[in-house]
Design a binder for these strands. Structure first.
Lengths: 208, 208
DNA sequence: GTAAAAAATGAATGAGTATTCATTCATATT
DNA sequence: AATATGAATGAATACTCATTCATTTTTTAC
């Protein structure tokens, strides 16, 4: 009885419940769009009652901001892990980071839909902008530094680290858009080939 | 003559009003986001009365779809014009089309904000997806054909037209995102340099 | 085992907003 | 000038949904 009660208990620890609601929020946004997602939808998706979101997040605005922050933090964490785990040279690291954006766990229908939902509102919401900006800066700076190291190593001419960072950053975001809009025709392998094609034409000594 | 002129003027006024409302819609979406734009906002922005949108567009949903269609059509029209007007070779044409996406009349704060607002909802709205898909297909096919011609002309190895089209398509969309999120740090010239840098590394004989 | 605390419920509230429609207004037609 | 017609208004309506809160259920502490 004690054991059963523990596994089937209806209440959950605060953090657990919050996470459950954030997950439900992402599902709803992906399915119905941010504008058409109601707190009732989120609660229903989580199998809980009407007032649950306000209990745990105080307001809808707050829930949405926390959802975005969760996504951004998750991305950063994957990013750092990919960086640490990859080979020692800057080319290894750059490749690992670029490939990260195509990994199914990141380049996932639901998550990408949520990113774009927020980007669509970023213009009018300073909070969203701040969170997105921060993540982008983090990404951009790292990529540019790696590109600079590769350029120095290979003594490449006619190319700047900044340009490479701009290309890679915009390409990965743009690939997400293709994935979102045309999941049928989107092909991870082709996307990867395109990215590698770019890297090998700009850094031929490093990416054959 | 008299009858005809009068008739066309009357219908023209109707189209004029619709266009005025579409413009107001884009302004509102850019300022407040799609989710927070009310029909009252749109009517107010146009200097007209509450019920005006329903009179001309039947419903809010319809207004939004027509707004997206307008944007897509406008883009296609600029695209065709740029294609026609550009130099004869495929490299001239490719450059002209790529540069189009950075032209202030296209890469404009308001319009880009509206594109992203719709992309954020594309997942849940088949109508939006269809319109976006169509535009993308148009773009992609043309770019790929031009890339294929350039590859043939220059006898380039280790590169496919499809890859080039993927890179260019995702890059231009991605650059729009940077422009939207960080208008302060976004730099048209640097974006252009990055695009040209890509083209010259992949097609060195055509883009020095 | 009991009491206090915490978590969760779901009906009620009220603010906001899409839509409707009776009426007014402007212009064209006779 | 008189009439007809489409355009526009804006108050009224109907509805959605975020938020609140009194109540119930579950957990924790003793």
């Amino acid at each position: 009885m004690v054991a059963t009660a523990k596994t089937t208990r209806r209440t959950a620890r605060r953090e657990q419940r919050r996470q459950q609601l954030i997950d439900a929020t992402m599902k709803c946004i992906a399915r119905k769009g941010m504008g058409n997602t109601t707190l009732g939808d989120v609660a229903g998706e989580a199998g809980l009652s009407q007032g649950i979101v306000n209990l745990h997040f105080k307001s809808k605005d707050n829930l949405l901001a926390e959802t975005l922050r969760y996504l951004a933090d998750e991305y950063k964490s994957h990013f750092s892990k990919a960086y640490e785990k990859s080979g020692p040279g800057p080319a290894d690291k750059l490749l690992a980071l670029v490939e990260l954006d195509l990994r199914p766990s990141i380049c996932d229908r639901r998550k990408v839909a949520v990113w774009f939902a927020f980007w669509g509102e970023v213009q009018s919401r300073p909070t969203y902008r701040k969170i997105c900006d921060e993540r982008d800066q983090y990404y951009d700076d790292t990529i540019e530094r790696l590109a600079a190291e590769i350029i120095a190593e290979g003594d490449y001419q006619h190319i700047t680290a900044e340009s490479v960072a701009i290309v890679l950053n915009s390409m990965t975001n743009g690939l997400w858009l293709s994935f979102l809009i045309s999941p049928r025709t989107f092909d991870r392998q082709k996307a990867r080939d395109a990215l590698l094609g770019y890297l090998s034409s700009v850094f031929p000594k490093h990416f054959s």
